[in-house]
Design a binder for these strands. Structure first.
Lengths: 207, 207
DNA sequence: TACAATAACTGGACTCGGTCTATTAAAGAG
DNA sequence: CTCTTTAATAGACCGAGTCCAGTTATTGTA
């Protein structure tokens, strides 16, 4: 079952991404059509949709790389640490791949792109997906009681919110921004402390 | 400046909404076209876009009613109460208009509609807008230092996340769901306590 | 070398959401 | 009756995304 059969790729995600980013800077996101992107990249329109399932995907592939790291980070946390602390450190370590030098293009150029609305929602749906992963992680540790379920859900969605806030703040600090990690920790720790207190004071169920 | 000038409305939001909801139940959200909605409502396609700026709007007008209440609720909070508590109670009271009898159609029928993805993102963009309002509210009370700014942002985005979680849990509890308020309080209070602690332990700036 | 299998690429037709513009219909105000 | 305002309409238009049938390039096999 060799993977090397068939015609090899003549183009690549990166080609299309570069062409897209150029055009986004020239004409804005909404002002750029998929056809224009493929023309600049020298491929057919259909090829674009072989690589990306939507126009907005070309914007978030860097982000997707980071998000893909999260499940593994969660799976390898210390089982003895408090839940929320474990979650927090998993998120921070998943983000470690974003050094100050490797900022996703999407974030640093947000301001030059014009209408954010459409992009916002495309990013949101990605993150909503992560919320489900976090909820599952927390639930596995604190049980499925109705109160626990609500707390788990709220905590994970709130964590996603904090991550968004931290990332925005980090991206805004364009001059001399450091690592993303400290921003995330600052945004997440108040939330984590509060939720952890609530969990600890819950009526205990069987482990 | 009488408002009664010009040709009176021959149709209404409600007509279109009812037609849309019928069709959503029959064919799902993605399986229903705007043209079908307007045909069932007996108006032209263009009329739909006179009333709604997007197909998804017809889904969220109940929600928009509630969201519109938030700024007023924030403006009338007790200035002496802790920030986070004030925010929390403003959110809860804004939601008070949603009794157990008046559940937004969107929430109770989510499961019967099929693909949530597109709807999710349209809801998200509404809520992202609310996050900005909350951030402004918090910032006005705790100042604009870089640390304060990050906390304000994180707290408001996290609060929105908690609201989403609470609302989902409430909608899920279809049999004998009570008021939304308690769900919101349960989801928000851990977060609020944690953030309030962080605010209180911040190096004090001039009021 | 010829042939099958596989997979990338292409072109084009199609649907649908959303925008825009020009036109007509229904009212109130002078 | 005429002017102004606003609702409704028809129709053209654009771009995102889907779908498919056909082409091209490569590898494995006979």
């Amino acid at each position: 079952m060799t993977n090397t059969r068939g015609r090899p790729h003549a183009s690549s995600c990166e080609m299309l991404q570069e062409a897209a980013f150029e055009l986004f800077l020239e004409n804005g996101y909404a002002g750029t059509t998929v056809t224009q992107i493929t023309q600049r990249a020298g491929v057919s329109r259909a090829t674009f949709f072989n690589y990306f399932s939507a126009k907005s995907d070309v914007f978030w592939i860097d982000l997707d790389d980071v998000l893909a790291r999260l499940p593994h980070g969660l799976a390898t946390t210390d089982a003895r640490a408090p839940v929320m602390q474990a979650m927090c450190s998993a998120i921070v370590s998943a983000s470690a791949s974003l050094g100050p030098s490797k900022v996703p293009w999407a974030l640093t150029h947000l301001s030059m792109i014009g209408d954010i609305g459409e992009l916002q929602s495309s990013a949101m749906s990605r993150l909503a997906c992560q919320a489900r992963i976090l909820t599952e992680f927390i639930t596995r540790r604190i049980g499925r009681g109705s109160e626990a379920a609500l707390i788990a859900r709220a905590a994970s969605f709130a964590a996603i919110g904090a991550v968004i806030a931290a990332t925005q703040a980090w991206a805004d600090a364009s001059t001399k921004r450091g690592e993303l990690g400290p921003y995330l920790t600052a945004a997440l720790s108040p939330l984590c402390h509060g939720v952890q207190d609530a969990i600890d004071s819950m009526p205990q169920r069987e482990l």
